[in-house]
């Protein structure tokens, strides 16, 4: 068994105002990930270490941390990839830290609710009338954007969100776009004003790191660009056809 050196950020507001690093030595096998190392530390070396996790398989989105300087899921980062190096594990950047690796998610939660992540119908039809049908092509249009697991890595990687937390940001826009493109949804008029606010998509300067770090292959940058195109065409239409355009 090899041994990994893990340097974890500790922040315990009840004992001191400043975060500090604490180093641990963890024996590991080739199939072990950073989350396994954190669990090993908690079980065997220091029970006070605090972090979030649940599924251990890249599904729940709760185990994100800044691993070796990059926002990653700790359950998807293998220890052997860092062989011979000290592995820094820090809380996700751009979020207030509550304790150790646990960050405050309230801002993100508020944004998720804000974009109304559900299918909006002008008038619901009773279930007896059957399901809302959709073709494979219609599904294709939004499918990748529905794979988001709300891990917030994209917000951590986004320098614009770091500068302005009012920015709606990558995952919330990707999710809004997922419903805008869903043929069953009729809520465009409700969502457009939210995504087309100044602090909706327009703050994005196309850095693209959100799409680089996403562990689920979602391309939030593409969703933001497509939403901008919809915003520009709507604005033009509202000038050229003030009565009919939106």
């Amino acid at each position: 068994m090899d041994t990994a050196t893990i340097r974890v950020t500790r922040y315990r507001p009840e004992t001191g105002p400043e975060p500090f690093f604490q180093e641990y030595k963890v024996p590991y096998r080739n199939d072990m990930v950073v989350l396994d190392a954190l669990n090993y530390i908690k079980a065997n070396l220091d029970g006070s270490l605090t972090y979030r996790w649940s599924c251990r398989m890249g599904v729940c989105g709760s185990c994100g941390a800044n691993v070796d300087g990059t926002p990653k899921l700790t359950c998807a980062s293998f220890l052997h990839e860092f062989k011979g190096r000290t592995i820094n594990v820090e809380p996700l950047p751009n979020f207030p830290v509550i304790k150790d690796l646990v960050v405050n998610m309230e801002d993100f939660m508020r944004k998720l609710v804000k974009i109304k992540p559900w299918i909006i119908r002008e008038k619901e039809t009773p279930p007896e009338q059957g399901e809302y049908q959709q073709s494979a092509e219609e599904l294709e249009r939004y499918q990748q954007f529905s794979s988001c697991i709300n891990c917030m890595l994209c917000y951590s990687a986004c320098p614009i969100y770091g500068l302005n937390e009012k920015f709606l940001g990558p995952a919330a826009t990707a999710l809004a776009y997922r419903y805008i493109e869903d043929s069953r949804d009729q809520g465009k008029n409700v969502r457009f004003p939210i995504v087309h606010e100044m602090e909706g998509v327009w703050e994005c300067t196309l850095v693209g790191e959100c799409s680089v770090v996403c562990p689920k292959g979602v391309d939030p940058m593409l969703a933001i660009q497509k939403t901008k195109i919809l915003g520009a065409t709507n604005a033009l239409r509202s000038i050229l056809m003030p009565r009919g355009g939106r």
Binding site: E106, R110, K114, P193, M198, G200, W202, A232, A235, L236
Partner: peptide, 19 residues
Amino acid sequence: VEMREEAPRVARLHAILWG
């Protein structure tokens, strides 16, 4: 999670400038 939100204001001019 606080649910109260201000009514959104579409940035129409910025949208055209972006276009």
